[in-house]
Design a protein around this nucleic acid. Sequence first.
DNA 1: CATGTTATTGGCGGCGTGCAACTAAGTGTG
DNA 2: CACACTTAGTTGCACGCCGCCAATAACATG
Lengths: 221, 221
Amino acid sequence: MLTDGVIYPLVFADVALFSIQERDLCVLLARRANDPEANKWALPGGILKPMIDASLDQTAVRIIRDKVGVSAGCVEQVRLFSGATRDPRGYSLSQLYCALLSKDQVCAVAGLKTSEVGWVPVKLATDKELAFDHGVMLTEALQFLRAKIKHRALPLHLLNATFSLLDLQDACSLILGSPVDKSSFRRRMKAETCIRPVQGQFREGAYRPAQLYQATPDFQF
Amino acid sequence: MLTDGVIYPLVFADVALFSIQERDLCVLLARRANDPEANKWALPGGILKPMIDASLDQTAVRIIRDKVGVSAGCVEQVRLFSGATRDPRGYSLSQLYCALLSKDQVCAVAGLKTSEVGWVPVKLATDKELAFDHGVMLTEALQFLRAKIKHRALPLHLLNATFSLLDLQDACSLILGSPVDKSSFRRRMKAETCIRPVQGQFREGAYRPAQLYQATPDFQF
DNA sequence: CATGTTATTGGCGGCGTGCAACTAAGTGTG
DNA sequence: CACACTTAGTTGCACGCCGCCAATAACATG
């Protein structure tokens, strides 16, 4: 990092990858294998590889693929962290990303590659002592996600291809950490153009079947 | 940049610095003196100097200070641009910042340091051919600013220490590029805690004097 | 058929907004 | 001094959206 008299900063992408597991909003954490902050839990991240990554955004995509084996929809920049002291290896930049994974995608991976990676409910994760400044990162990623939901974005990437309105409402409620009114939520969804009911498709199981919905092509989280 | 076999990216901070001049929303542009894209207009920017800048955010602050001689309130990250092709010098990262300057601050600088820096109305600036990907940057910085105003943030940093409600309304209107309803705007401002009327202070001049307001301590952006 | 559980809809009051008109205060003119 | 003009600030009203509460619909189980 110090070479021709000039200091080059280390450049990382760190990802807060969210998913819903067992009726809880969870974040993917990885236990650090190597030396700086070894054995501590951290957000999955990696260094920019200019020969491989067309951009730092692509670094984030690559990291997700490496960790869980699937490509997440909706990978978005949250904030850039930088400074000389946040990583003992030297002056560093870390771009924080927020990404969502559906239950279908999580199940497709079955077991994660290593036992050193796991889904942790965000309530527990924010209490954990994370490596570096990843505790702050997780908090900001959550704020970012909550702000989007408050501004009426829909977390469709957290859901399967078809879903009931209650699934969607629950996802919003889990992210916000507060209940969402059923009747006004459904009213809004009826007027929404980015989801539509799948004619004749209903959730089977107990009691009254629920109409299933799917995202329309023009949807961007 | 290529030294010990590893490629280190160049790291820049670029700033979209806005101010209101002659009833127009303007952005500060600098004419490039040196070789890549020489003579083209660009957003003021500079390279990260790890020995000087405690963080990349501080790089942005330093750049503003160097260009206009004052420190802007409210310097915020917009988006990180990265890739191998956006700058001919090699793989680069540019963090885009959005910052606001009040008329008072602009006047305090009197003339800008060089004639190669100037305030350009955003309507003209978006038409200009800017260097690198700065055209996209300017567009995104504007979107960023507009989104904040739509979400009911107040651009107090664009105004002087004391201001009339019409000043504030005009600032919002200029940013949005569309008229703002006077009556509902004033209703909102009455309920707002981040500004308060200055007792007994009125704008002098022609016709009926306008009550002057100021920001309260608890104001952020 | 009664009961429980989930799905879906409807009514109602409150709040904020956009629109339009109105009042208030000061300047300028004949 | 009456009157027109300009800017400042208010008021009334209709509309839309939201939260709250309740009702109805569809299905399962005993």
